[in-house]
């Protein structure tokens, strides 16, 4: 199997604070990798580095074997057209109705005509279990769970090869969280996409992951198949997945 995304020795510091400290990881084509780790362990920064929203200080990030660090604006945009991302707070454009949010990548990114894009947006909304009538509402009129669904629809509308999920279940009730997990699994399977997710919700991780990696203090401390995470033999992973306050991981109470 070929690697879709490869990170080698990526480091990033903000001022005196080192967030990523020589991080290496790879995701195979068609695979679902979930990165777990506590708050402030560098999960979000990892995603943003791959997308190019944050520039790493050192290291290499390859997508399909091509180096992406230092790409120019236009090449970056071309690369990003193969990505989809579901943001933690859904990050829907609140000045646009739901259907335009979903169709945004089609209209602006691929130059598809509005009428056709609207039809495809309605189809995509149906895939995440939302009716066509929702399309005319504005994001502020939706509940948190529905916003997440619309965010998911927006992420998959352009049929991307790679999808990122940033804490897909945070802030949802357990039932809605499971609904979102099911939708993620279903949509990813339909598209055959490669996915990279970050979460600290273990039930979500074990549901959507093929492989799980644990990040701690900007480094990868464990990686393996999803089912092995519960008896990894690693004290740090054990403490995290079982949610214990005592153990080798000390939560930084002061940033």
């Amino acid at each position: 199997m070929t690697d879709k995304i490869t990170l080698e020795n990526v480091s990033k510091s903000f001022g005196r604070k080192t967030v990523l400290d020589g991080l290496s990881l790879s995701v195979e084509k068609g695979q679902s990798l979930v990165i777990i780790g506590g708050s402030g362990s560098g999960k979000s920064v990892t995603l943003k580095c791959i997308l190019g929203l944050i520039h790493p200080d050192r290291g290499s990030i390859k997508v399909d074997g091509r180096e992406t660090v230092g790409l120019s604006g236009r090449e970056r945009a071309r690369m990003l057209s193969r990505f989809g991302m579901l943001f933690q707070g859904a990050a829907l454009f609140d000045s646009l109705p739901v259907w335009e949010n979903v169709a945004f990548g089609l209209i602006e990114g691929q130059g598809i005509r509005r009428k056709e894009a609207r039809d495809r947006a309605v189809d995509t909304l149906a895939q995440v279990g939302l009716g066509a009538d929702v399309g005319d509402l504005f994001p502020s009129e939706l509940s948190g769970g529905m916003q997440k669904r619309v965010g998911l629809a927006r992420a998959i509308a352009t049929r991307p090869e790679i999808i990122f999920f940033d804490e897909p279940t945070t802030g949802l009730d357990p039932i809605m969280a499971d609904v979102i997990n099911d939708l993620i699994v279903k949509c990813v399977k339909d598209l055959g996409a490669t996915t990279l997710s970050i979460t600290h919700d273990m039930s979500s991780a074990s549901k959507i992951a093929d492989r799980i990696a644990m990040l701690y203090q900007g480094r990868m401390i464990w990686e393996g198949p999803a089912k092995d995470v519960w008896n990894s033999g690693n004290d740090y992973v054990d403490q995290f997945v079982h949610g214990r306050a005592d153990g080798p991981i000390r939560m930084a109470l002061r940033a």
């Binding site: 943001f87 933690q88 707070g89 829907l92 454009f93 990114g109």
Partner: peptide, 17 residues
């Protein structure tokens, strides 16, 4: 507001400058 709610980042990921 768009910046702090990641809407600006979302624009980037949708290939829009």
């Amino acid at each position: 507001t768009m910046k702090v709610t990641e809407q600006v980042d979302a624009l980037y990921t949708l290939s829009t400058n």
